[in-house]
Design a protein around this nucleic acid. Sequence first.
DNA 1: TCCATCGTTTAGAATAAATTAAACGTTCTG
DNA 2: CAGAACGTTTAATTTATTCTAAACGATGGA
Lengths: 180, 180
Amino acid sequence: MESATLTTRSWLSERRRFVEAGGNTTHSFGLGRMIGRAYALLYLTPEPMALEDIALSLSVSKASASIVVRQLSSWHALRQVWIPGDRRDYYEAETNFSIILKEGIMPGLRKKLQSAGLQIERSMSAESGAVSLDCSRTSEDDRIFTREQRAELRRRLKTAQSLHRRADRVLTSKLLSRFL
Amino acid sequence: MESATLTTRSWLSERRRFVEAGGNTTHSFGLGRMIGRAYALLYLTPEPMALEDIALSLSVSKASASIVVRQLSSWHALRQVWIPGDRRDYYEAETNFSIILKEGIMPGLRKKLQSAGLQIERSMSAESGAVSLDCSRTSEDDRIFTREQRAELRRRLKTAQSLHRRADRVLTSKLLSRFL
DNA sequence: TCCATCGTTTAGAATAAATTAAACGTTCTG
DNA sequence: CAGAACGTTTAATTTATTCTAAACGATGGA
């Protein structure tokens, strides 16, 4: 064992920078900063970490750590590890990104898209059900649409629906997973 | 022209619901609520709208409308329309989603990914540059990594880098655009 | 030129989100 | 059984974001 086992402090400060960069990345994607910081930390920590270690390393309360760990776990981005003779919960990063993508992120995305798709369908049936009247405009809020405009509306709703379907298909298919 | 030109109020309230749903969707994707509301409004409005119309329809100030319109324009999600004899700026929705995706969203995503990729590279060179020492631990903050752990770190950084590259390739390639 | 009408900027207020300390329930240990 | 060590929940605070009103510069008539 002549060659060595202690990394210099420079590497540790580099890891800190990595952690902050992870936080900035997730934050810029609208996911909050803690998520990226926690995952990045565990990604660059070869041994499992206990909740308190995580909290200390990130300089946040145990409560925050608890929440972020739960979030990451629900995305399959973290795996819980039990260490015999230790009551604490240990976590390590799931390093297989396609698992995180397939099991964690994609389902979440699909769920969000689904509610959008529902609204599109509702609007489509509302549009086709909308009775056209010639007179009796009851308020200023009412608006006139020509026949051509109504046709355009229908066209747009159809386009939106087809986009939605294709997006869902992309998320469902293994195609994207294969690439990532 | 016996058949008619005035949609009932029910359609207009449906449009309002569509607008709110759009807002909720973009909000759930971390983009803020106004973006989705504004785009949805213009998407379901066949004629171009002036800034103030948008503000009134969404019940927000002209300042907010101005900001959100600029944002959407930068994504190529809105097109500016000039109406002769009218000083105001009119906007209409870009209904070709692949343009929005290719010109507006993808470049933004790539830019965000790029800064993450930069950090990965920096960490890789820091890791390989990290000198191993046997003694002279200077502070509690220093940590021991075994040779195996350092190898694992390198492996993980490489994995992250390759994921990053593939993600960038997916965003760059026409593949995704073809599907959407 | 002067006034009215735009769209934008900005500083401050309102709103939403993240974070924490403290209380709580559980589980292990002595 | 009592106490300590966990992780979670909650209510309150802090922080960040979003939104607005007012001021501003620019542009186009009168």
